[in-house]
C-alpha cells in the first residue's frame, strides 16, 4: 500500500508544480512528472509478487505462465508513454512560440500583455 501512496505523492507534486508555478517550462515539467507517476502507478497495479516478464521461451514449463505479470497494463502504458512524448512536443512548440511573441516565459507577464 505504501507504494501506491508514494505514487500519489509524486502525482500531487506534479499537480502542485503545474498549478502554483509561474514559469511555463516549470508547468510543462509538472505535466511530465504527473505522466511518470501515472505510468508507474498502472505498472505497479499489474505487478505480481515473484512475477516474471510476460515473454514465452522455448521449453518453458506451463506453470511459469501463472507467474507472468499483467501484460495488459504494460501494453496500455506503452501506448501512454508514446502519446506523452507527442503531447510534450506540442507543448514545447507552443512554449517556443509564446517566447518568440512575448520575450518571456513568465505567465503573469504574458497574461498582462493580452496577446
Amino acid at each position: 500500500m505504501t507504494v501506491y501512496f508514494m505514487c500519489i505523492v509524486l502525482l500531487t507534486m506534479g499537480l502542485y508544480c503545474l498549478v502554483a508555478k509561474k514559469n511555463i517550462v516549470k508547468k510543462i515539467l509538472g505535466i511530465v512528472i504527473m505522466d511518470y507517476a501515472v505510468n508507474l502507478y498502472i505498472i505497479i497495479v499489474g505487478y505480481k509478487t515473484g512475477g516474471v516478464a510476460p515473454i514465452i521461451e522455448p521449453n518453458m514449463p506451463a506453470a511459469t505462465l501463472e507467474r507472468f505479470v499483467d501484460p495488459l497494463t504494460q501494453a496500455l502504458v506503452l501506448t501512454s508513454i508514446v502519446i506523452g512524448l507527442g503531447v510534450l512536443s506540442l507543448m514545447v512548440a507552443m512554449c517556443i512560440r509564446l517566447y518568440e511573441k512575448h520575450g518571456t516565459f513568465d505567465m503573469s507577464v504574458i497574461s498582462k500583455l493580452r496577446g
Binding site: 517550462v25 510543462i28 515539467l29 511530465v32 505510468n39 508507474l40 505498472i43 505497479i44 505487478y47 505480481k48 512475477g51 516474471v52 516478464a53 510476460p54 515473454i55 505479470v69 504494460q74 502504458v77 506503452l78 508513454i81 508514446v82 506523452g84 512524448l85 510534450l88 512536443s89 514545447v92 512554449c95 517556443i96
Partner: peptide, 27 residues
Amino acid sequence: FLFLGAPDIAITQLVVEVLVLIILIRG
C-alpha cells in the same frame, strides 16, 4: 520498470526520455 518485470516499457521509456531531454533543452 525493469524491476517490475516490464522490459519493453523500460526500453521505450529510455528512448522517450532521451527525446524528452533533447526537446526540453531545445525549448
